[in-house]
Design a protein around this nucleic acid. Structure first.
Lengths: 273, 273
DNA sequence: CGGCTACTTGAAGGATTTCAACGTAGGTGG
DNA sequence: CCACCTACGTTGAAATCCTTCAAGTAGCCG
């Protein structure tokens, strides 16, 4: 059904090919570095790797979760569809993000996840993750932190929809994407490859695609952003400061910070002491 | 500074006074019953109990988390404040809910929590919770489930702000509160004590208090709800079905049951019709 | 070339906000 | 016990933001 990545590797001799790519470890390092034995333990947990084309469903609302995925490349989108056919996007899923982590405590999904671009990812068996949570408290805490950070981003998104103007919402999304991509080293300076259509942005920020268009043109005409279509669509943030100001952006919610001391101490004592 | 509940207990003789009230266990039972040894283990973890009056801050954005709380009675609100002074409420915190669970993996809060009514709660030390996660995997999973459910409610809230009309948003909030209160047995039939001002509702659903007023009057005039002020403010849902229809409400996101709502409706219609 | 998708622009309409009053209930101090 | 004060709720009218409707452009792929 779904084929593994067809890289022409000579047998199984490649000893430590990384199944979970570097973006995950860059992101998680904000919380705690995952290195050495821990990293190889996590790598050995990878059951398989996968690829999907754009517009492919990875999780479906109302259906059982599949394996948990860690994105290695490509973008996906998590959303709910309403009775009238309109949809609301919760968040854009970037390399290094988990997909379907709720499967550890819920059997059926209440949202959809679909790829936007071609994607590659590592698959982790749910039972292995649950077992890991008992044996490796630091990794358990790291997963808990990923969840908490995602929830924080969701809250900021809610704040946008509830209390910010159309211009602010669009600007805010663009700054957030820039910052998240910079963290995983997928931005080049203040620009990044931009796979989102204006309709996707609209479904995220609660506007019509038409109005998103007007807001982006306004940002462009004021010299805050620029857009180039070739060779691939790319967004350039011309003035990060002014874009942040236009968005009412505060970066605290992204938690570019460290693990609290007490958590580190507790975990170290449990393990070594 | 903060006094313990002044109940005139005769010394320490009361052996097993429940520090975490019943609402928490009713809610969590949807996921897994916490009974016997597990329940008493959790009860022994309670470091102390506390009370606060209305409009009291329990968590402050930008400051370190205090102990983790489990609400025993009263309502609180979790929100962020924007630069211009407006605020966005993420969720209303009811009896049985945790406060400050993120303290397990983050040291500084990025949101405020404040009481709406007088509240009572149990305090749990963060270190004890972290230790518990390693020794009691079922309790760890239960906490993980609480987080996942809260995130799911937040997503539905986001969907309201992004894609529903003012009338739908208000109706949706009222149905959600009814359902959550029924789960913890704090509703009486289809009515419940309503401590929220229209301004609080407005800050939750992203409208002005004036427009919330108009929407509530519309719901009242159409016979969907009724409001009585004495002896305490109380909201009566006169027609749950029609209120749910007006809200575009689907209860899957609350994770009450294994059975999706459309299935249950189909069964009820088949029986009653 | 035709058909598709995404993007762009203008004008009219509608939903929600803003501004401005007024009502009502509870609490406080004279 | 009444006068005043404050917080919350209620209503109307004007202004604004965003949507809807309509039309047209640009690039891509068969």
């Amino acid at each position: 059904m779904m084929r593994h990545q067809g890289a022409a590797l000579p047998g199984k001799s490649a000893p430590d090919r990384h199944a979970i790519g570097p973006h995950f470890f860059r992101k998680i390092a904000v919380f705690a570095p995952i290195e050495g034995a821990e990293q190889s333990f996590l790598q050995r947990l990878v059951a398989s790797e996968g690829n999907v084309p754009p517009d492919h469903h990875l999780v479906r609302a109302g259906e059982e979760y599949g394996p948990i995925l860690v994105v290695n490349s490509g973008w996906a989108v998590r959303y709910r569809t309403l009775a009238d056919g309109s949809r609301q996007i919760a968040n854009f899923i970037l390399p290094g993000d988990f997909i379907g982590l709720n499967a550890t405590v819920m059997s059926v999904s209440d949202y959809d996840v679909a790829s936007i671009t071609p994607m590659s990812f590592a698959r982790l068996r749910i039972d292995d993750i649950i077992a890991m949570m008992e044996t490796h408290p630091r990794l358990c805490a790291a997963i808990f932190w990923c969840n908490a950070r995602e929830e924080s981003i969701l809250f900021e998104h809610l704040t946008s929809l509830g209390r910010r103007s159309a211009l602010e919402r669009v600007a805010h999304l663009l700054v957030e994407l820039l910052r998240r991509l910079q963290l995983i080293e997928l931005a080049e300076g203040d620009s990044f490859v931009m796979p989102l259509t204006q309709q996707l942005i609209a479904d995220s920020v609660g506007l019509t695609a038409i109005h998103v268009n007007r807001m982006m043109r306004a940002l462009e005409q004021n010299g805050l952003i620029a857009y180039s279509r070739h060779p691939v669509p790319r967004l350039h943030v011309r003035d990060v400061r002014r874009l942040e100001a236009a968005a009412g952006f505060e970066d605290g919610y992204l938690h570019f910070t460290e693990m609290p001391m007490r958590t580190r101490r507790a975990i170290e004592n449990a393990n070594g002491g």
